[in-house]
Design a protein around this nucleic acid. Structure first.
Lengths: 225, 225
DNA sequence: GAAATAGTGTCTGTAAGACAATATGGA
DNA sequence: TCCATATTGTCTTACAGACACTATTTC
């Protein structure tokens, strides 16, 4: 019984919110295969490196974001035989959510990097099977907003209810009633922790600033319906 | 830029319901490492084989179940550097749910196989990092019962409301009110499709037989709360 | 008939969604 | 002052959970 050799990579679906769009990080490939095409950031896992460590390392290389500030979780494995023309490659995809929008810094094997609105990516095409990985990452993010406090991962450490609502509206591409949303999230147990301070950065009456609470699950969930 | 060689395996969390327990399939290892210890079924991915195909092949080898009757979905990748003492192995774990309980047939490199109640497995320990994989599989199954029709994967093609309720009760280890459960699942849009026939196999008044409906998502969800 | 399970009805509390009304800052 | 947004309150409707009650089979 042998064990045929595979290459193992990590690929990243990194999402952030620009002014009014949900964006994913894409890099232009600088090496074969698919030179010059857009792809998700990623790279080979090192011999003594854990998968999650490899994902965090690639994320830091591509974005320069401090690891502690970014939510990252595994999406799943992708390993169809022909997905990389060079050799048999299995990739473990990770989903990362970043609060602000730093200018991407091109990594070693990426000629260029940019934040691309997911709306436009749905029409273009990424290298390898990255269209599917991106779609899976988007669906994961959208689904987890429903029943976890994941939306706070798109926010700065302190945020207002309106900023949190904007996350839901951009990720789900819907409109939510500000008053019902406010009542719901301030009532959800363990979701928000008041800081006592306020801000007027959204204009109008000063809004309470909150930190993310200790809850890992949202009850009752926010339903897209 | 090299690409260090890895071995890639698939491992399976296969769940079924015995008389009154949720059980997972475990095999006694016949080869090093961990000879003689219990582990999840699994094996190496072949050079030209898709990951999901490898998982289905291993499932068929270990259980003899016809592939079409079993729900199978990917759980995720596990690849910590020391998880296999022989070499660097990344495994892609799959979750499978089987309706009935066939006698397991030992595979090529498994000396023995059995259905083990998950309640007892929580106290014993499996080889490799299989304790964690099993725990992740159980949590996935429990969570997906809430908002998908996955519970029907534990049932025969035609089933009664009481049989469906038993799935929830055993997987969640709770009691559900038969009357409220009945009202809820028969009202959930697209979950159940009446066959028009009835059965008395549960005793008492004959119960309607249902097939699984076309819905992929359960709305409103069944909440564990 | 009794026992068992299937299925319906009713009530109460909670929460969602629509939307009026009030509060508090900046220009 | 007006404007913009925050926050609270009210009303209606839907649904969860508790549980009485009826229905239909086997013994």
């Amino acid at each position: 019984m042998g064990h045929p050799p595979f290459a193992v990579t990590v690929d990243l679906v990194v999402l952030t919110l620009t002014g009014d769009e949900l964006c994913a990080l894409v890099v232009r490939r600088g090496v074969e295969p698919y030179v010059g095409e857009w792809a998700l950031p990623g790279g080979f896992v090192r011999p003594e490196e854990d998968l999650a460590d490899a994902a965090r390392r690639e994320l830091a290389e591509e974005t320069g974001l401090a690891p502690g500030t970014v939510h990252i979780e595994q999406l799943g494995g992708y390993g169809a035989p022909g997905r990389d023309p060079r050799m048999r490659v299995v990739t473990i995809a990770y989903l990362a959510l970043a609060p602000d929008l730093p200018v991407p810094s091109a990594g070693t094997d990426a000629a260029d990097a940019r934040w691309a609105p997911v709306r436009t990516l749905a029409r273009e095409s990424l290298a390898f099977d990255h269209d599917r990985i991106l779609a899976d990452g988007l669906e994961r993010a959208r689904a987890k907003l429903e029943y976890t406090p994941l939306a706070t991962a798109f926010c700065a450490p302190e945020f207002t209810v309106a900023e949190l609502r904007r996350v839901y509206e951009l990720v789900w591409d819907t409109r939510l009633d500000p008053r019902n949303f406010h009542r719901k999230v301030t009532g959800a147990d363990g979701l928000l922790e008041p800081t006592g301070r306020t801000t007027t950065r959204d204009g109008g009456r000063p809004a309470q600033l909150y930190r993310r609470g200790r809850a890992e699950l949202l009850y009752p969930p926010m339903l897209r319906s």
